[in-house]
Design a protein around this nucleic acid. Structure first.
Length: 156
DNA sequence: GCCAACGTTGGC
DNA sequence: GCCAACGTTGGC
């Protein structure tokens, strides 16, 4: 089981939106490295839900990867802001995952706090200028992150 | 709202 | 394949 960190702007889609909906398709990722990480995910993996462009930015929740290797349908939708006219149905360019809500953290972990706790080598999101929206998190760092907050256990 | 950092595009 | 121009991300 691997851990990941996935960013979303809460004004667009927040951890509370996921809590209400239970699960969602993580569509709209249009960066090749982030897509490669999405492709590497396996069902049962866990991911931290990171609120970007928030006040303060930071880790807000936890989710589980439900379904992988999903073709992102928004790339074919001309009305979508994520439409990619260069992607064809025969050879889709963008893949994503379906995620399941697990928990809202009992205490959010702000970016300043993460910076104070982890080096850029340990946790890529604290790196200056880090723009990747999906990134891996090592088991040890994930456990240290979880130890900093409270996560009410929710049956899935 | 600003702007630094970064990714992508396209001319050559 | 280089690189300047441009667009986007995201912290502050």
């Amino acid at each position: 089981m691997n851990y990941w960190l996935m960013k979303s702007e809460p004004s667009v889609y927040s951890i509370w939106d996921l809590q209400r909906e239970g699960q969602t398709l993580w569509d709209g990722v249009r960066n090749y490295q982030a897509r490669n990480y999405l492709k590497a995910m396996q069902p049962g993996d866990r991911a931290f839900f990171y609120h970007s462009n928030a006040d303060p930015p930071g880790i807000a929740g936890l989710m589980e990867i439900l379904e992988t290797q999903v073709v992102d349908p928004s790339q074919f939708d001309a009305a979508s802001p994520y439409y990619d006219p260069k992607s064809g149905c025969a050879d889709p360019r963008w893949y994503t995952v379906r995620v399941q809500f697990v928990a809202v953290l009992g205490r959010f972990l702000s970016l300043p706090e993460l910076r104070a706790t982890f080096t850029p080598e340990e946790l890529e999101v604290v790196r200056r200028g880090s723009r990747l929206s999906v990134m891996p998190v090592s088991q040890t760092v994930a456990e240290r992150v979880l130890a900093l907050t409270t996560v009410s256990s929710q049956p899935l």
